[in-house]
């Protein structure tokens, strides 16, 4: 464990707490893409199958349970909670995310570290996480004004993988047998997708103005 990875995990946790706060405090999920939340739930379920087979550390197991439980809770809330689901922007959240799932599954079958069930699912979860934010970014552009909590949620979500990239650079230079090119390439793509959001987020922060994404 190094500081970059710890900061990355904490940033990821903060983004989830911000989303839970927004939904719980405002009893609304306007501006949040249910499809992105479903993709994240799938990412965690596919990646953390080893939760019961390989014990790495208490921290590792606890965080996996937190990520799986929170992502499923958010999906449940947006689909079933009688008050929250009324504020879901159903007509704006129209990204065909099943294509993302199919494409990532196909890619995982072609490119993975070892052609085994767990490795294919692990690669699938890495590829899917890289593109899972797309429905959310499209929804933000369509819905125009972004409320603060949603903006902060997306910002921390983008920042977490940027910390992981620093973690991989650090591990590359400090560990001998360290090769995670699948994660590194996907992580770079994932962080690059946030580039324009980060730009507009910085502009809105500098001008102390409302975050506006160009349609």
């Amino acid at each position: 464990m190094n500081i970059f990875r710890f900061l990355g995990d904490m940033t990821h946790l903060i983004s989830i707490l911000i989303l839970l706060l927004k939904i719980y405090a405002t009893k609304s999920c306007s501006g949040i893409s249910l499809k992105t939340q479903e993709l994240y739930a799938l990412v965690f379920l596919a990646r953390y199958l080893d939760l019961f087979t390989d014990f790495i550390s208490v921290y590792n197991s606890v965080m996996k349970v937190v990520f799986i439980a929170s992502s499923l809770a958010i999906v449940w809330c947006m689909r079933r909670h009688r008050v929250v689901r009324r504020s879901y922007d159903k007509e704006l959240d129209t990204f065909r995310h099943y294509f993302l799932v199919a494409a990532c599954l196909a890619l995982a079958l072609l490119v993975q570290e070892k052609f085994t069930f767990l490795e294919v699912l692990w690669a699938f979860s890495i590829y899917l996480e890289a593109v899972a934010i797309l429905p959310q970014l499209v929804l933000l552009q369509r819905s125009g004004n972004v409320d603060n909590l949603t903006g902060q949620y997306v910002f921390f979500l983008g920042a977490y993988r940027a910390f992981y990239i620093l973690n991989w650079i650090y591990r590359y230079f400090t560990e001998t047998h360290f090769s995670r090119w699948i994660s590194c390439v996907s992580g770079l793509v994932q962080t690059a997708l946030y580039a324009d959001f980060f730009y507009y987020y910085f502009i809105s922060w500098k001008n102390n103005s409302k975050l506006q994404l160009p349609a």
Binding site: H12, D50, N60, K64, F67, W122, E175, H177, S179, S183
Partner: peptide, 10 residues
């Protein structure tokens, strides 16, 4: 390092 080391991340 053992194989597991590449999967010790979240």
């Amino acid at each position: 390092a053992k194989e597991q080391s590449t999967k010790d991340e979240l």
